[in-house]
């Protein structure tokens, strides 16, 4: 839609979303609005709330999203390994939120968790590389490791003016408010067009706890 927007390029993008979990849904919705092909959302810690995703993605886009949830490090690793069988060059996006979380749990021995986590980062990079698809990851734990492994980092911050997203490939002052976009920033309406106003949601609720 607009090159100024944080659309995601092929390669691994680390979204450093600090205390703003809603940034993930916004980035995904923004990226998919313009994309064709399906999206694979490899979930951890119940980030994949259908309501939250739909609030930021219209019906067509939302229908393209496939989700599989991992509840242990072993499952996460197996799902990462299964991605090459699912993802094609026509895939719009691969989303891997909380990429390190399940490896930090004490139900996996540390050495094994470490090896699986390393392999996960390697596999995601290789997948992005080989098929030239964008891969978006977030992390609460081991952010430095994830940042190093990523091709680029995008940061999202909560500011007084709303949500601020910074990245290498787009302007640094793109703001969203929790309740909608910041209309006082003049170029905003030009940037997004008025249609997006309806798509902007209420603050995203945290998802329900896992089973």
């Amino acid at each position: 839609m607009n090159s100024q927007l944080p659309t995601l390029e092929p390669g691994v993008t680390f979204l450093d979303d600090g205390d703003t979990p809603a940034a993930l849904y916004r980035l995904v919705g923004r990226h998919l609005a313009d994309a064709n092909g399906s999206t694979y959302w490899l979930d951890a810690r119940n980030a994949a709330s259908p309501d939250a995703i739909r609030r930021h993605a219209d019906g067509r886009v939302a229908r393209s999203v496939r989700v599989a949830r991992a509840f242990t490090g072993y499952q996460h690793y197996e799902l990462v390994r299964s991605l090459p069988a699912e993802v094609t060059p026509r895939t719009a996006l691969v989303v891997v939120p909380n990429v390190a979380s399940l490896y930090a749990e004490d139900d996996v021995p540390a050495f094994e968790a470490e090896a699986m986590f390393d392999a996960t980062l390697e596999l995601l990079a290789a997948l992005a590389d080989a098929l030239a698809v964008p891969v978006l990851v977030t992390a609460r734990e081991r952010r430095d490791r994830v940042r190093d492994a990523a091709d680029r980092t995008v940061t999202a911050q909560r500011t007084q003016a709303g949500l601020r997203v910074d990245g290498p490939s787009f302007r640094t002052d793109v703001y969203w408010h929790d309740w909608g976009f910041q209309t006082t920033i003049p170029y905003w309406v030009d940037l997004l067009g008025a249609a997006d106003a309806d798509a902007e949601p209420a603050p995203v609720e945290p998802a329900a706890p896992e089973v």
């Binding site: 259908p50 999203v65 989700v67 599989a68 197996e78």
Partner: peptide, 8 residues
């Protein structure tokens, strides 16, 4: 064993 890929 993992979850299957599912639509929203």
């Amino acid at each position: 064993q993992t979850e299957r890929w599912k639509s929203l």
